[in-house]
Amino acid sequence: MRIAIVHDELMRRGGAEQVVMTMLKAFPSADVFTLAYNPEGTYPEYRDVDIKTSKLQFLSKSVKWMQRLFFPFGIIAMKNVKVHNYDVVLISNTHCAKYVNIDDRAKVFIYTYTPFRLAWNPSSYSQYTESKGLSRFVFDKVISLLKKIDKKAAQRGDYFIGMTKETAQRIRDAYGVKDIKIIPPDVKTRNFHVSDKPKDYYLLVSRLEYYKKADLAIEAFNERGAKLIVVGNGTKEAELKAMANENIEFKKGLSAKELMELYANCKALIFPQHEDYGITPLEANASGRPVIAYGMGGVLETMIPYEGIANKATAIFFKDQTKESLLEAIGLFETLDFNSNFIRAHAEKFDETVFVAELRKFINEKYQLKSIY
């Protein structure tokens, strides 16, 4: 069985890029295709992989330029990537991986993190919510076109895989798909350890973008005065740094070991966004650390919320996406004792080995079904 893996772009470090690494563990002989690849921007493990890129590679030297050129040049570039003579094409996708040129021979599996956010949930971008007049008119026209292109491209999929029940429903709503297999993204528990003596700081690990709501955490910690370490970069970095008090420290470009130590020694991870899935809460759990999370989205399916017994919980949820609600949750957290070993054991249920086994089983079963007919 000859397999190709297609991913949107490999230019940054995020949960989707980690999932692709695990897909390669499941199918180590697979060829990898993507819109553009920046070895300095994404995980170093990809340096050992033969990655085939689109023609946009020559113009996309940064995430900023990739995003600027995506419409229409990125779409055109991906449509011209030929992924031919494969038995299985496994697409890791939010926006453009499904546009590639696939021949009729292949069975196509589309692992969708969420339908293209700009097309189906434009209000998650500040550029859209802040636009007015002619700018909003142009935005709406582009979004209408993107929806049509995106939905049409999705019809190439023979089988769909989603992360959670919530994202599976989004896939149904956007693409009209009925049957969706749910395989949650993995956490590489081997990369994390439990510390005997956590230190006196909270941790936030995130891309610094509008919908990630890091500003909410900064507002809360400006008021509380407790130490917060923020790890990540993005278009809102300068703005967030400008609003932060001295008790808030920013870090980026960390090694895996440095990040592992920050997880292991934090009091808790702060997770203020409504996320499609959210791998960082599971990474915190793999380090034996609890999470203070906005109680919506993927955390509802990956975390065990505090409901009166702290040593049988992995997280505290706050119900409103406000500074006051987050501060109330932090205050509650300070009165409780969580069980690090219980939290770590919970994370192991989402380990890489579980994802690899489930993905192999699903693809092999469906491919063999095709061979029968």
Rank of each mutant, 00 (worst) to 15 (best):
V6P: 07
R12E: 01
R12Q: 07
M23Y: 08
K25H: 08
E40P: 12
Y43K: 06
D48Y: 10
I51Y: 13
S54N: 07
S62E: 05
V63G: 02
M66V: 14
Q67P: 07
P72E: 07
K79W: 02
V83I: 13
D87L: 11
A97I: 10
K98P: 10
K98C: 10
K98W: 05
K98A: 08
K107I: 10
I110Y: 12
P115L: 01
A119N: 08
W120H: 12
Q127Y: 14
Q127S: 07
Y128S: 07
G133W: 12
L134R: 06
F137R: 06
V138E: 03
V142L: 08
I143W: 10
K147Y: 09
K147H: 14
K152N: 08
A153F: 06
Y159N: 06
M163F: 12
T164F: 04
T164C: 05
G176N: 08
K181Y: 08
I183N: 04
V187D: 00
V187M: 03
Y201S: 11
Y201E: 07
Y202W: 13
V205Q: 01
S206E: 00
E209G: 04
Y211G: 08
K213N: 09
L216R: 00
A217C: 00
I218V: 02
K227M: 06
L228H: 09
T235S: 07
E237N: 06
A242N: 06
A242H: 00
A244S: 12
N245T: 10
I248N: 10
I248M: 15
E249M: 09
K252S: 14
G253T: 10
C266T: 12
F271T: 03
P272A: 00
Q273Y: 01
H274I: 12
L282C: 06
A286K: 02
S287H: 02
S287T: 03
G288M: 15
G297D: 06
G298L: 01
V299C: 11
T302H: 03
M303L: 14
I304T: 09
A310P: 10
N311G: 11
T314C: 09
I316M: 11
K319H: 14
Q321A: 05
K323E: 07
G331M: 03
E334A: 13
F338Q: 02
N339K: 13
I343E: 01
A345F: 01
T353I: 10
V354Y: 03
L369T: 05
K370L: 12
K370M: 08
